[in-house]
Design a protein around this nucleic acid. Structure first.
Lengths: 413, 413
DNA sequence: CTTCTTTTTTCGAGCATTGAAAATAATGCT
DNA sequence: AGCATTATTTTCAATGCTCGAAAAAAGAAG
């Protein structure tokens, strides 16, 4: 249970959070619209909004858009004050690092990309690498230096239980390095680490509003296989839950060699390197390629789509691995939707027959029916969007929340 | 998200719930003790307690136990008023139905047991069956008739999404029958259906206080294989989440025939009938026995414990199935403890080597280390305890909660 | 210039929490 | 027996939040 005492302060926080969420979700709104969106009374809306305005978190928009037939008093829209805060978002991948600067309104301000190789972090300490990019980014937008409140990093792998480091990562030389803590101390800013799967879960809700309240498993298929889950629109827990190691769920005991060093993982059948390996009849115990060029993977899909036998076979094996993984997932957690994202999403139709077949062999799949499996063809947006929304939400609810008391709009004195 | 507006009413409910939970967990307490247990101020404690007293939910105990060296004003202990409510709890099993009458204090008042056969519910409608037992029970304790507030039923199988019925159940002729709704209408009482796995999750927290805040997967091994999960002391969702179909997770494609009709389920290797089948070298595609006498299962364990080859082999196969199931579970959800309960708990040591072996082959198991696997030798208590606590909690928070306003202790007039 | 319409703010009431002070109820010492 | 001591409960006044209703504000329509 671990519930905690509730008082009038927690009431205000709850309702303030409600308002901010509504604003994040629906964009600029009038106070009246927000009141009905959140269910709060107009009176409370006024009070909360005057708090937010005096804190500088939101700003009133000038009604430059008189939409013709407006009868009564025109509504003043409010929205996030873009300059109230900035955040730096790193996305670390096996072969690329991307750093984005966003403002409090969620707008992308600037972006830097850097290629990574398996030896990058052997040559430079991860903290140093990140710090350098951050300097470069801030040099181009000096105004953001003062308002930068958070650094968030998307990583792959297994996090420490305290979320401050990595126990294992497919990105070489990253595990064990306390770069988040170091960077945090060097900059005097909160630096958070986010497992990719968790961000997939977060991002999926924002990609398709219809899924915002649903239970969704989002599967990334590409250089790795990852999964995040939401449960009726919520992500379990505060930490890095909602993330799974789906890609490293065992598919076949003692099976194909995975990049993680284990054998028989789903990833070892369904990630790009695995499909490639199978398409070219390389023994499945051969060491996985460190990185597969996007073109090569694309070409393989084309070959399979045009009927090439060995390519088709490779995608069938991938589908079978994912299918049995999903079938096993269903025994534990039964989502209403399964979203496939990443480069491999394009190959869903190649894999679907095997996926369907595998799900049919499970009790839950056959009783409850297979969930909707949908491809979302977008390699990075779910992760970026998830990272962005998670970070803005942290700023909303953590950084800007604990102000103890605020002066109300002057009570006539 | 789906959060809702908070007001002073929700504050009171939250804190009231806190007090009741503390009382359920720790037993009779003084107001002062409850205040420090919940974190509420003494003043609030007085207010909440006078609410509860005037509603008749709790009663003050007469301090019949003057414990010697008590210095100041002696504390008056409060506890649940046992006669404030009663509940009837059905536990439906493949071969037994048990009905317990409990009071609001959680004390078992009376109990009726009935054997079931695969044809029981072919001969009598489930609603009728339940209603008859309930009449018999109430006839023996007429005082409970007026205060009976809820009927709760523990079942096995897959529930409808609305939780009002069963889609599938190993108990013959139970799926599809709307007995919960019928019984509810016939009696004018709320009747709730609970999946066994969910109750395992609920019950595990109460069996061992140390696990109350942990993430636990509780596995029942016996005539079926079931699992419930808690996450940092919480059970996901309001409905029947927290339950899984672990027993029907696929272990080997196209493998042994399961009672559910599918092939290769974990249950088809690890339930009592499966171990029996393997120990006697019956083909694994042979139809499962409808029910295995407890004695026969016990004997099998004894044989294995004393070294009998075929018996040992059968338990090894069971361990392997459970082990791979757990290894696959770990990829999705990583509990700190795994509790094995039910008749098969005694066989844990026979299965442990294979379980450990299987977990070692998974990435999460090898990075994070295997979770603590503990046997809890108690066939029915986790389920009963879970059903009891869940139902009492429902009475606390649902039945007794929505009273709109209560008179405070008279403000000097 | 007045009337209508819609949005926003103000006002008073109601509730729940809290810390501090007061009341209560027993024991221990003189 | 009487008074000091000690621990538990209750009372009191202050604070903060929400809410409904009424008032104020800001344009559009006639």
């Amino acid at each position: 249970m671990t519930r905690t005492v509730s008082d009038s302060d927690s009431v205000r926080r709850q309702n303030r959070g409600l308002v901010l969420s509504a604003l994040r979700m629906q964009g600029a709104q009038s106070r009246t619209a927000l009141a009905s969106l959140t269910g709060l009374s107009h009176a409370s809306m006024t009070a909360i909004m005057s708090d937010l305005l005096s804190q500088g978190l939101v700003a009133e928009l000038i009604a430059d858009r008189p939409d013709g037939r407006a009868r009564g008093r025109p509504a003043t829209f409010v929205n996030f004050a873009r300059n109230a805060a900035h955040a730096a978002l790193f996305e670390l991948d096996v072969n690329r690092a991307r750093l984005s600067l966003i403002d409090y309104g969620g707008v992308l301000v600037d972006r830097i990309e850097t290629d990574l190789t398996p030896t990058t972090f052997a040559g430079i300490a991860p903290c140093r690498f990140l710090s350098d990019r951050l300097d470069a980014l801030l040099a181009r937008t000096p105004a953001a230096q003062k308002t930068l409140r958070r650094v968030a990093i998307s990583v792959q792998g297994i996090l420490e239980r305290d979320g401050r480091g990595l126990r294992w990562s497919p990105i070489q030389h990253l595990a064990g390095a306390p770069f988040a803590t170091e960077l945090s101390e060097a900059r005097g800013l909160p630096v958070t680490l986010h497992k990719r799967g968790r961000l997939l879960a977060e991002g999926a809700r924002w990609l398709d509003p219809a899924l915002h309240e649903a239970s969704v498993a989002t599967v990334f298929v590409g250089s790795t296989v990852a999964m995040g889950v939401t449960f009726r629109g919520q992500i379990m827990g505060r930490g890095d839950e909602g993330a799974t190691e789906f890609g490293h769920m065992n598919h076949v005991p003692n099976g194909a060699l995975c990049r993680c060093g284990m054998r028989g993982c789903i990833e070892a059948y369904a990630a790009d390197y695995a499909v490639l390996r199978n398409a070219y009849s390389v023994p499945e115990t051969a060491p996985p390629a460190p990185a597969v060029p996007a073109q090569q993977y694309e070409m393989l899909m084309q070959r399979a789509e045009s009927g090439d036998r060995s390519a088709t076979h490779a995608f069938n094996l991938a589908g079978r691995a994912i299918g049995f993984g999903l079938s096993r997932l269903l025994a534990i957690y039964d989502p209403s939707h399964i979203l496939i994202v990443g480069p491999g999403a394009r190959a869903l139709e190649l894999m679907r027959p095997e996926i369907d077949q595998a799900i049919k062999t499970s009790l839950v799949g056959s009783i409850n029916g297979a969930p909707n499996i949908i491809a979302h063809r977008d390699e990075t947006e779910p992760i970026f969007k998830g990272l962005l929304m998670k970070t803005l939400n942290d700023i909303d609810q953590v950084d800007f929340a604990p102000l103890p008391s605020t002066e109300r709009a002057g009570t006539a004195g």
